[in-house]
């Protein structure tokens, strides 16, 4: 499904979302180029999580459009049917803050389940692929363990493998390291860095400033449901012009 005119991998226009009377997103737009990595930062309550969940339609936007590789996949006003919701999700991966592994399945089954059920791969194909991916994230010896037997860092790597198994065009990360003990974060960040270097298109909500500096091409700063600033990560994270962003970044980097 290559696109000759080099359309963005993911394009979101004017995404709006309210919960009851509360407006969480006030029209957010972004174009993510193929192979680009965008970090989304911002104070809590700014709508980062809601925005990234809208991109996978875990929250249905009230308004706005989504395009994947130039193809329109959602026009919120037209109420797209479920079938296309599922086909969108096959193409957009999601990694959650609390991993959300299927607790009744082993690591291997977690990775292979959707390959069989959603992509229609055979049992053999999916297991081979899953083993390969689990090796790649460094979990060769933990394939038959259940989520309860794994550390947070290990669970998150299984979750990343689960997403990779779908061969997504874009992967969304929703604070992937916030629920993990600090010493275990490194291994997850390492896997994410490798993914980024491999050319995967990624959008990540994160509080890891150092990681974002290295891995992200652009940074999107959200406040009160709007994009306050968007630009190259070096500029925004090292020397932000906006005073509010400066204070936020300094606080996260531990600079007083």
């Amino acid at each position: 499904m290559t696109n000759p005119d080099g359309a963005p991998a993911l394009s979101a226009k004017n995404i709006c979302k309210s919960f009851g009377d509360k407006k969480i997103l006030r029209g957010i737009s972004v174009d993510v180029a193929k192979g680009e990595h965008i970090a989304i930062i911002g104070p809590s309550g700014s709508g980062k999580s809601t925005f990234i969940r809208c991109l996978n339609l875990l929250e249905m936007p009230d308004n706005g459009t989504l395009r994947l590789d130039g193809q329109q996949v959602l026009d919120a006003e037209l109420k797209t049917p479920t079938r296309s919701v599922r086909s969108l999700r096959k193409r957009v991966g999601m990694v959650f803050q609390s991993f959300n592994l299927f607790s009744t399945h082993t690591a291997l089954e977690n990775v292979s389940l959707a390959q069989r059920l959603a992509l229609g791969r055979t049992r053999d194909e999916s297991s081979t692929r899953s083993e390969e991916l689990l090796k790649r994230v460094g979990l060769k010896d933990h394939m038959d363990k259940r989520p309860g037997q794994l550390s947070g860092g290990q669970q998150q790597r299984v979750a990343i493998a689960r997403t990779l198994a779908m061969d997504p065009e874009v992967i969304l990360f929703d604070e992937p390291t916030s629920a993990i003990d600090p010493e275990m974060r490194v291994e997850v960040l390492k896997v994410m860095t490798e993914l980024a270097e491999g050319g995967m298109t990624m959008m990540m909500v994160t509080h890891e400033i150092e990681f974002a500096k290295q891995a992200a091409d652009r940074v999107m700063f959200l406040a009160d449901g709007e994009v306050m600033e968007m630009g190259p990560s070096g500029q925004i994270l090292t020397d932000p012009e906006n005073e509010r962003i400066r204070r936020f970044v300094n606080a996260l980097s531990g600079v007083i």
Binding site: N56, L58, R86, S87, R89, K90, G93, M94, F96, S98, F99, N100, L101, F102, S103, T104, L113, A114, L117, A118, A159, R162, T163, M166
Partner: peptide, 20 residues
């Protein structure tokens, strides 16, 4: 979260009920 994860890897409602 497990239901959402299942949705995010494109499982159908029936599959979510029977497999998760």
């Amino acid at each position: 979260g497990q239901i959402e994860a299942a949705q995010s890897v494109a499982l159908s409602r029936g599959q979510i009920t029977s497999r998760i």
